[in-house]
Design a protein around this nucleic acid. Structure first.
Lengths: 232, 232
DNA sequence: CGATTGCTTGAATACTGTCAACTAGTGTGG
DNA sequence: CCACACTAGTTGACAGTATTCAAGCAATCG
């Protein structure tokens, strides 16, 4: 369970295809896996694009996948960073409402929508799992809307980093120097800031002793104190 | 179908209790209605509070209900304005993640969670409806995240007003002088702005001839042209 | 009728964005 | 192998937008 490297394969159930369905039996899981395939992606590869017909469901197995919405003029809002165990577009009908791209190397389990629908139709409990997963996704979205609308840059970054740390820790990763595989631009597009503001704010936090910036990682030193007024 | 006043009762199916489930038969609908009750609220009444145990599901029948998330220090983010036909907390387990309050007089259909779960357990198609509704909610949330993170005040307001108009129009309401029942503070807390910025930006749009501000209403005159760069 | 609340506007401030420059690291091609 | 180009990250200077603080007005309510 203790995977030290960031993109390392993980014995965690969540990291297996179909691992997002916690109530599936072993037989179900085996069958589910035969219905889909594991697809490797390299950094920046696009899994699917906003507006394209949604033919498949996805589940991240390894790595990080950025989910984002764009407008014609290069503006981009990354709505979430998907980690192993997270599912994408499970209930999308018709066309994709968002795009997805690999943040670094990633492995994704993909299953045609009809096959999954057929699989689920025999198993009522699967639908319940999906509803629960979507409820979590909605709750997360509410959190993010609050952050985007009501937090200043510094608070956005601290909350982002601590949440990211907590998610990785839940996957059993080593988070002491917290791995931050996404670029500054990705962070900016996620928090509704510019690259420059992200850099500057991180630098400010480092000068204050709250964090330590390392290549590809950030050590969280005193975020509780700094975040206290924000999270109380 | 032509309801002229804003909070007027509406013959639209969506405005009936259970009307959000479009594939329910008449018999199902009748039974569903007996399981819940219609509860009237007056302006500013709280339906449920973030952190409280989630014992019921809600569906707006009449009026507008604001869904919001707060932090201890008075900061508030209104994540959505629910209209007749919209459902609330249908899949929430445990505790409410958000609060809800009536924006003006409202009628809400409320059903205990267990009763609805029991009702749904005999009817597999209900779960599919719920999944579809939640998928729509997630897509909406993505839109709002983009607006909060990547649009300036003026664009936020124009997009908000046009979306609001489109939603009311879909309910068969008269939207020529667009009814705006929520306060400036509500709008500000929805768009991630301050009351003052909302006022000033609306005034600017009015001076420019894009809108006309009336008491409780706003007439949209030239939003297409103004919004064109934003929505293209 | 006074008081409260919501809305509006003004002035000053602060934060974030824009533009620009510089560094370091990476990869490419000669 | 090295020169070159390109990208990501960082920092500075400046501009612009949104916030804060403040005050005035109108409408509502007790």
């Amino acid at each position: 369970m203790a995977a030290s490297s960031f993109a390392a394969p993980c014995a965690n159930a969540a990291a297996q295809p179909g691992g997002f369905l916690s109530h599936l039996g072993a037989a179900d899981l085996r069958q589910l896996m035969t219905l889909g395939e594991r697809v490797p992606y390299t950094s920046q590869d696009v899994l699917f694009t906003q507006g394209a017909p949604a033919g498949k469901c996805f589940s991240v197995v390894e790595g990080v996948v950025g989910i984002y919405r764009t407008e014609c003029d290069n503006r981009r809002q990354i709505t979430s960073f998907a980690l192993p165990g997270d599912i994408l577009e499970i209930a999308t009908q018709g066309h994709h409402e968002v795009s997805a791209a690999a943040i670094g190397p990633a492995v994704v389990w993909e299953i045609p929508r009809e096959k999954f629908a057929q699989f689920a139709s025999h198993r009522p409990y699967v639908l319940n799992e999906i509803v629960a997963l979507m409820a979590t996704e909605i709750a997360d979205a509410h959190d993010k809307m609050f952050s985007l609308g009501r937090r200043a840059a510094e608070e956005k970054l601290i909350v982002f980093l601590t949440h990211w740390r907590d998610r990785l820790a839940r996957l059993g990763r080593d988070v002491d120097p917290l791995p931050v595989p996404m670029s500054r631009r990705d962070i900016a597009d996620h928090l509704g800031l510019t690259v420059e503001t992200v850099c500057r704010t991180l630098a400010k936090l480092e000068r204050r002793g709250a964090i330590e910036i390392l290549p590809g990682r950030i050590r969280l030193l005193d975020t509780e104190a700094v975040a206290a007024p924000a999270l109380a």
